[in-house]
């Protein structure tokens, strides 16, 4: 399952690491945009196979944030 950015944003906090087990609804990353902290949540349970962002990165709309298997 690919988790993608819904909007242009700064990556404020990364809360998971590759190989970590996550549950549906867990917050993976917190983005910062439009003066708001916007959580990016897992839309299913699994293991974080890839994590494509680091704190301080800028993501564009549609950019890959993580892959969960």
């Amino acid at each position: 399952m690919e988790i993608r950015a819904e909007m242009v944003a700064n990556v404020w906090k990364v809360l998971v690491s590759e190989g970590q087990q996550v549950q549906d609804g867990d917050t993976l990353v917190i983005l910062e945009s439009m003066k708001m902290e916007i959580p990016v949540v897992a839309e299913g349970s699994g293991v974080v196979r890839e994590l494509k962002v680091a704190e301080g990165d800028v993501v564009q709309d549609g950019d890959l944030i993580a892959v969960i298997e």
Partner: peptide, 8 residues
């Protein structure tokens, strides 16, 4: 809904 797109 601020949870999605910051509520924009």
């Amino acid at each position: 809904n601020p949870l999605r797109l910051g509520g924009c």
